[in-house]
Simulated scan of single mutants.
Amino acid sequence: MPSSARRAVIVGAFNTRQARVLEGETSDSITLTAIRGALDDAGLRVADVDGLNVLPGLDYLNGSRVFGYALGIPYFWVGRAAPGPASVVEAAHAIEAGVCDTVVLAAGEAGIHTDRAAVAPWTRPSNEFIECWGLMTPAEFALSAREYMWRYSVDPVQIAYIAAVIRNNGSRNPEAVYHGRGPFTAEDILASRMIAEPYHLLDCAMTAEGGSALVMTTAERARDLSGRGVHVLGGGSESWGPSYTHPPTYERVGMLGRRAGDRAFAQAGLARSDVDVFELYDNFSWEIIRYFEALRYCEVGEGAAFVADGAIEIGGDYPIVTDGGTMSHSHTGESQRHQRVVQAVRQLRGTSAANQVADARVALVAALGDIVLLGA
């Protein structure tokens, strides 16, 4: 166990402006804007930073090193985990082990100008199953959703309700790309065109441009800063794959995140009922049910009933995706996973731009098999 002085704390959280297209911006420039914003929020300078996990665009290999050099940081720890919960947990481990003291996590994407008539470029990587047979991301994720709905006799209206809740959260959020687009009903979701059965257009994430960043440091350093820190209480990460080459059957992906969630709650010493807000990666509507079942909030096959009747709305027992998520707030390739953490931090600070959950003290952030628990 690390000493209390070295426990990891998030002290800076920032999203740039999000838009369908950010004219005049590049992935590098919008990521730099996010970093500056997060450091300002933390009350720290570049000179304080000795750890980086930076992903401009999709430059997984060199992003941190390029930015470290450009920012003038002579030597620095480099994180390798994917943005969002996984990178937060990795950075927390590094800080608590004394490998580094202050870490910037950032990602951004702009200047892509995605063909709006097609799915996003990152959902159709060069692969024989995509180029020949069309197994792009929406089709891949639809397979397990359709199998689940058949297996447990789920009405499509129950799935569409989830998308309506998330999009309505975004409609109320002035920072969301789709602010003011709503309200939606389940019937509105089902009336949108089919993309990959059972997913209609409004069941799916959009594409957008923007950046997001976080700053983490030790509890000891955080005490000297003026902002309100958010503690990393526990986390876990697991994966499966390789994607696009093996069928994502329900048996393969349905419980993704279960063991990671068990580890996160055990580390935090919390019960499931202690969580006040759920910032879940909402790439497709059924995934919300999958999260709640995998994380043991309800039995397998009971998720559709569990989320019904206002349970996941603001004011319900399990409020989800409070900024509008990838369906309504933004979807920027990878930085949207950081946005899940940024929104959790804002909820715990009581500074959400909309849909503030009253007295939120514990937040769960989940992105596929990556889980982190945060506490005010």
Rank of each mutant, 00 (worst) to 15 (best):
D28Y: 15
L32S: 12
L32I: 03
V11F: 06
I30V: 15
S29A: 13
I35E: 02
S27Y: 09
N15E: 15
V9Y: 11
I35W: 07
A19N: 07
A38D: 09
R20N: 05
V9M: 15
T31K: 10
T33Q: 14
I30L: 04
I30H: 02
S27V: 00
R36K: 15
L39M: 11
L22A: 10
R20H: 11
F14H: 15
L32K: 13
R36G: 13
A34R: 07
T31I: 00
I10G: 04
A13T: 03
L22Y: 03
S29C: 03
A34W: 03
T16F: 05
A34N: 01
I35G: 01
E23H: 13
A38W: 08
V21F: 13
I35L: 07
A38M: 05
L22W: 04
N15T: 09
R20Q: 08
V11A: 05
T31G: 05
I10L: 15
R17S: 12
A38Y: 02
G12Q: 08
T16W: 03
I30G: 06
T16P: 07
A13R: 10
A34M: 07
R20F: 07
T16R: 06
G24S: 11
I35V: 10
G37K: 05
T31Y: 07
L22S: 07
F14T: 05
A19V: 02
G37D: 04
A19D: 14
F14I: 02
A13S: 15
L32A: 14
R36E: 13
V21P: 02
D28L: 15
V21S: 09
L22Q: 06
I30F: 02
S29E: 02
G24F: 02
E25H: 11
N15C: 12
A8T: 11
T26R: 04
N15G: 14
G12C: 08
R36A: 13
A8N: 12
T31E: 02
T33R: 15
D28M: 12
G24I: 01
I35N: 00
T31Q: 03
G37Y: 07
L32P: 00
E25D: 09
S27F: 08
I35D: 04
G12F: 04
V11H: 04
V21R: 15
T16Y: 04
L22T: 01
V9K: 10
E25L: 06
Q18C: 12
A34H: 06
V9W: 02
L32T: 06
R36L: 08
T16L: 07
Q18V: 10
R36Y: 09
A13G: 11
S27G: 11
S29V: 02
T33V: 03
R17L: 10
T31F: 06
G12I: 03
G24H: 12
V11K: 05
T31M: 08
S27D: 05
A38S: 14
D28H: 15
G12A: 11
G12L: 05
N15K: 11
E25P: 00
L39D: 03
G37V: 05
Q18F: 15
L22C: 09
G12S: 10
A19R: 09
F14A: 14
D28S: 13
S29D: 01
V11N: 03
R36T: 06
T31A: 01
G37I: 03
T33P: 00
N15W: 00
A8L: 12
A8W: 07
V11Y: 04
R20K: 14
R20L: 10
V11E: 06
S29I: 00
G37N: 08
V21M: 03
I10E: 03
I35K: 06
R17D: 09
A38T: 00
